[in-house]
Design a protein around this nucleic acid. Structure first.
Length: 170
DNA sequence: TCAGTGATTAGG
DNA sequence: CTAATCACTGAG
């Protein structure tokens, strides 16, 4: 079941709109032998701008966060704990650093586990989702009920930012 | 509860 | 250059 690729405009909106809208969408990833894998997104988190203490861009513009300052529709990929690649989608307008962390897809929960399964690594940093031939998102025709909670794993960000209801899941 | 593992960042 | 930190995971 294939769908229409999400266009750049989908991602050039506030991350608090993009993140929940990604739930139920299909992520398509090419394997090394050219066979596309298709997975339904079921869990995401929003990281919103330089004021958000949990957002990597809160410490300012660095080499790592550079892609978040670009127009929405690209991937922000980074390594955490020396072992796990995190897959994020840049959202929002240029110079407004926002991103959506993909935390889970159907039958595969955990942001580190899905990137291992997908083969995501540093070479995906900055990948353009509107043009890439190895990863993109598609419409699915499925609109799930959205559940909401606080974000996970950001104790360092302080009570206010830790308590923002910016985790969205099915 | 806690160690693994290495890129990234701030600071000297 | 050093040292601290980390949007996680799996073992015990």
């Amino acid at each position: 079941m294939t769908g229409i690729r999400l266009k750049r405009d989908f991602f050039i909106r506030d991350v608090l709109d993009v993140a929940p809208d990604l739930l139920g969408k299909t992520i398509v990833i090419m394997s090394v032998d050219g066979v596309p894998g298709r997975y339904r997104v079921i869990e995401v988190e929003a990281y919103r701008g330089s004021e958000d203490k949990a957002c990597h861009a809160s410490k300012g513009r660095t080499a790592r966060t550079e892609v978040m300052y670009m127009e929405g529709g690209r991937l922000y990929v980074y390594l955490i704990y020396g072992m796990y690649w995190m897959l994020n989608v840049v959202a929002g307008a240029e110079n407004d650093p926002q991103a959506v962390l993909i935390r889970g897809v159907e039958n595969l929960n955990g942001p580190g586990k899905l990137t291992k399964k997908f083969g995501i690594d540093r070479t995906f940093y900055g990948e353009d989702l509107s043009k890439s031939d190895r990863i993109w998102f598609e419409e699915s025709g499925f609109t799930p009920a959205v559940k909401i909670s606080e974000r996970i794993g950001i104790d360092y960000a302080g009570d206010y930012w830790k308590s923002r209801p910016w985790r969205f899941f099915v």
